[in-house]
Amino acid sequence: MLELDPWTLLTIVLMGVVTVITRGFFFISSKPWTLPHWAQRGLQYAPIAALAAVVIPEVVTTQGTLVSTWQDARLFAAAAGVAWFVWQRSVLGTIVAGMAVYLPLHIGLGW
């Protein structure tokens, strides 16, 4: 339970360094520098693209394969969550409505 492999500890510490470098990549240098105009325009679309690239595969695939049945709790939960957001504009409500659909289908029916 409390074992600590030195090699694993080194890996963990260096992964922390990777977090600092990636999250602060463009903060490291103090030289004046600005993004080109097209890149600034592109940032309009990057955050939603990043979220969709993470979320959509988690909803519609299993280990990279598209779901082949409609009996999948994730599909109904995601639809309920988005519908709730369109209706109420609440992120918390999206989570609650989605899980209220997901848990009975997933645990109850095994979807």
Binding site: R74, A78, G81, T94
Partner: peptide
């Protein structure tokens, strides 16, 4: 899956 739903809500916003 609640974490995915949180991201989905922010995506919608």
């Amino acid at each position: 899956f609640a974490g995915i739903l949180a991201l989905l809500g922010v995506l919608s916003s």
